[in-house]
Amino acid sequence: MKRSARLFTAASVAAALTLGLAATSSVQAFDEHEATIDYRQGVMRAIGGNMGSVAAIVIDGADFGDNLKIHTQQLVDLTRDIPSLFPEGSDFPDTDAREEIWDNWDRYVELANDSRDAAEALHAAVESGDESEYPIRFRNLGQSCQACHDDFRRD
């Protein structure tokens, strides 16, 4: 094989390797974000599940009042740091997250914190057994969810 041909082959191999490695690392980043998105969506569904259960008890009088604290504790835990579920780059087009989250991050964090605070307030009422506050605080929490979805989620 002539020298120039060998050089060409070596360059081709090097280029292929470089491209392959770059592709692998971008696939890894993609996979990592996909896993983040799966996790985030699972958390959101868990929040929804707990909200549905609390609504059935607090609004419609389902006879599971003894379990209320389980649900409100989970809501406190799951809303504690919602912004961490939305790292930059986790806005693939097929998610419901709007780009405005990252464009308007401070506002987003503020609304997420409203949900955290509202969940804590609901849980506090349940812990103290102040039943007259349950529906009010549940509505407040729901409104905080809605306010955030309104601006930052595709529907």
């Binding site: 929804g48 909200m51 549905g52 409104q143 969810c145 809605q146 979805h149 601006d151 989620r153 529907d155």
Partner: peptide, 20 residues
């Protein structure tokens, strides 16, 4: 309940134009 608070049957909350 949805028309009052925006909570869906499965505990999700409306956003977008329906929230308005």
């Amino acid at each position: 309940r949805y028309l009052e608070m925006g909570i869906t049957r499965d505990g999700d909350f409306a956003g977008g134009s329906m929230a308005d």
